[in-house]
């Protein structure tokens, strides 16, 4: 009598184990689903910039409108935006009117980087659509672009007052992007030194 009781309990136990074994695929499925779902919302074509927190890379580049004048990174001073554009880039034409608006509002200094363009075509682009830029660097061979990790146009880099790159935006800039993404990051280090240190720690 007592022996059969033991048999029952051990059988119950192995039944429980078996039930857990049946649950295992379900658990694995849920884990995989969660893992894959976190990747769903992300845009795979948007890469994180490797230059966040670093200074603007060194360069010697001519200006788009003065081929004889060469300037270096020391002549840039943040807070500012560096906007990568080209005449061959359709989205740059879409973006340009807002850059004009932004420049006219004097809310921010915008530097232009004419990326992998022909000089006459780049000049025509700016002459036709207006010039929102403080100065325009001419990157004909695209090497400055590569130093900045540019992989397309338009891209816009946010430079803080220490001339550090704090953010890179891929795609067009509009009112929404400026107000909600670029401006808060550009002036993040001017809201007191305490928030600066925590902000950097959070990154």
């Amino acid at each position: 009598m007592s022996e059969s009781g033991q048999d029952n309990s051990s059988q119950n136990k192995s039944d429980q184990n078996r039930q857990l074994l049946f649950l295992l695929p379900l658990l694995l499925f849920v884990a995989m689903a969660v893992l894959l779902a976190t990747g769903l919302g992300k845009d795979p074509t948007e890469l994180d910039s490797q230059l966040i927190g670093k200074s603007i890379p060194g360069f010697q580049k001519t200006l788009l409108f003065s081929p004889n004048k060469t300037i270096s990174e020391k002549e840039l001073q943040g807070p500012a935006l560096i906007n990568v554009f080209a005449s061959w880039c359709p989205a740059c034409y879409t973006e340009h009117p807002y850059l004009m608006q932004l420049a006219q509002s004097k809310a921010v200094k915008i530097y232009g980087l004419n990326y992998k363009d022909k000089r006459d075509k780049g000049q025509k682009f700016v002459n036709d659509l207006g010039n929102p830029y403080d100065l325009i660097l001419f990157d004909d061979n695209g090497r400055l672009g590569i130093d900045m990790g540019v992989y397309g146009a338009p891209e816009t880099f946010v430079i803080n007052s220490d001339n550090q790159i704090v953010y890179r935006h891929v795609g067009i800039v509009n009112l929404d992007v400026w107000q909600n993404i670029l401006r808060p990051r550009m002036f993040a280090n001017q809201e007191g030194s305490a928030s600066k240190s925590t902000g950097q720690a959070a990154k």
């Binding site: 890469l47 994180d48 490797q50 130093d147 992989y151």
Partner: peptide, 8 residues
Amino acid sequence: LKERYGDF
């Protein structure tokens, strides 16, 4: 290249 474009 990794310094510019990351592990990608």
